[in-house]
C-alpha cells in the first residue's frame, strides 16, 4: 500500500510541469480572449522555438551537472557570422577572389562556429578543470566581443526572403521554426534515451567518480555535450537572425537565463543526473506561455521579469521538496 502511495507521489511529481502549464493556460485564457486563438497558438510556438533549441542543449549540459552561460552570446555570434558570410562573403583582394556563401554554406558555417565554441568550452572545462560556470561565463564575454568585432557594432540586415524563410516561413501549415525545434527535440530525445552517449550523460551527472571508475571517458563525453550545446545555440542564432531579417550585435542577451529557467521548470535537477528533454520542452512552453500571457494582459515588462523570476524560484523550491521526499 505504501509503495503504491509512493508511486503515485512520484508520478504526480513528474506531472507537475504539465499541471502547471494547464493551470497557467486556464488562467490566461480566462483573463484574455486573445489567448485561445489559432494565431496566438502559432505565435507562442514560433517564439519558443529558439528557446527550445537553447534549452535542449542546456538540458544535456545540466544533466551532467554542468551549466552553459554562453549560449546567448554564441547565438549572437553565429547569427552574425551566418548573416555576414551570406550577405558579404569573403574578399581576398590579393588573389582578386571573392568567396560567396550560399544559404546552406553560411548556415553550416554558423553552426560549425557554434560547435567550435562549444568544443572550446568543453576543452577548457575538462583540460584545465575550470568550473563550467566560470569557463562559460568567460565564453559569454568572448563571444559577445567577437560579435561586436565581426559586426563592427552595427546590425547586418537585408538578408532577403530566402534567408527569412527559416524564421518566418510556413511548411505544411506549420511555421518553419517549429519544424526545426521539433527536429532538434526528436534528435535529442533519441540521443538521451537510446544511445550510449545519453546513458553516459545521465551517469556522469548522477555520480562522476563512479562513472570514471566504470570506464566512461568523462572528458570526451563532456566535450561532445558542450559541442552539441554550442551547435544548438547556433541553430537558435540562425532562427533569430532569419526572423528579424537582421543579425543584431546584442541579440540573445539574457537568453541563457530563459533556457536555464526552462530546464529547471521542466524538472531537470541542477545537481545533474535527473531530468528529461520532454520536461525541458514543457518548461520552455511554460516560459513562452507566461511571456505571452503577461504581454496579452498588458503587464509592464519590468513586472514580467519579476514574475518570471518568482516562477523559476518556485520551480526550484518544488524540485528541492520533491528530492527530499523522494
Amino acid at each position: 500500500m505504501q509503495t503504491t502511495l509512493e508511486d503515485q507521489k512520484k508520478r504526480l511529481s513528474k506531472l507537475q510541469p504539465l499541471i502547471a502549464l494547464f493551470v497557467l493556460c486556464l488562467i490566461i485564457g480566462l483573463l484574455s480572449d486573445k489567448f485561445f486563438t489559432v494565431s496566438n497558438f502559432w505565435n507562442v510556438l514560433r517564439q519558443i522555438s529558439v528557446n527550445i533549441c537553447l534549452s535542449v542543449g542546456m538540458t544535456l549540459v545540466v544533466l551532467m551537472a554542468g551549466i552553459d552561460l554562453s549560449v546567448g552570446s554564441v547565438l549572437a555570434l553565429c547569427g552574425a557570422i551566418t548573416a555576414g558570410l551570406f550577405k558579404m562573403g569573403i574578399e581576398l583582394p590579393s588573389q582578386n577572389l571573392y568567396i560567396g556563401f550560399t544559404l546552406l554554406g553560411a548556415s553550416l558555417a554558423g553552426v560549425l562556429t557554434g560547435a567550435l565554441l562549444g568544443f572550446f568550452n568543453g576543452f577548457v572545462i575538462t583540460r584545465f578543470k575550470v568550473p563550467s560556470f566560470v569557463a562559460t561565463l568567460a565564453m559569454l564575454t568572448v563571444a559577445r566581443g567577437l560579435t561586436m568585432l565581426w559586426t563592427k557594432g552595427f546590425p547586418i540586415s537585408g538578408l532577403g526572403e530566402q534567408f527569412a524563410y527559416m524564421g518566418t516561413g510556413w511548411f505544411l501549415g506549420v511555421p518553419v521554426p517549429v519544424w526545426i525545434s521539433a527536429a532538434v527535440v526528436a534528435l535529442a530525445v533519441f540521443l538521451s534515451d537510446n544511445t550510449k552517449l545519453g546513458r553516459y550523460i545521465y551517469a556522469i551527472g548522477g555520480n562522476e567518480n563512479a562513472s570514471l571508475l566504470s570506464g566512461i571517458n568523462i572528458n570526451k563525453v563532456k566535450i561532445i555535450v558542450y559541442t552539441i550545446a554550442g551547435a544548438l545555440a547556433a541553430v537558435g542564432g540562425l532562427m533569430v537572425t532569419s526572423r528579424l531579417d537582421s543579425a543584431q550585435p546584442n541579440a540573445g542577451t539574457g537568453y541563457e537565463l530563459d533556457s536555464i529557467a526552462a530546464v529547471v521548470i521542466g524538472g531537470t535537477s541542477l545537481s545533474g543526473g535527473k531530468g528529461s528533454i520532454w520536461g525541458t520542452v514543457l518548461g520552455a512552453i511554460i516560459i513562452g506561455v507566461l511571456n505571452n500571457g503577461l504581454v496579452l494582459l498588458n503587464v509592464s515588462p519590468f513586472w514580467q521579469q519579476v514574475v518570471k523570476g518568482f516562477v523559476i524560484l518556485l520551480a526550484v523550491i518544488i524540485d528541492k521538496a520533491n528530492s527530499k521526499n523522494g
Partner: peptide, 15 residues
C-alpha cells in the same frame, strides 16, 4: 557535396 553547394568563387573586381 555540402562544400560544393555551400560556396562559390568569383572575381573580386566583377563583384
Amino acid at each position: 557535396i555540402l562544400a560544393y553547394n555551400s560556396v562559390y568563387f568569383r572575381e573580386l573586381d566583377e563583384v
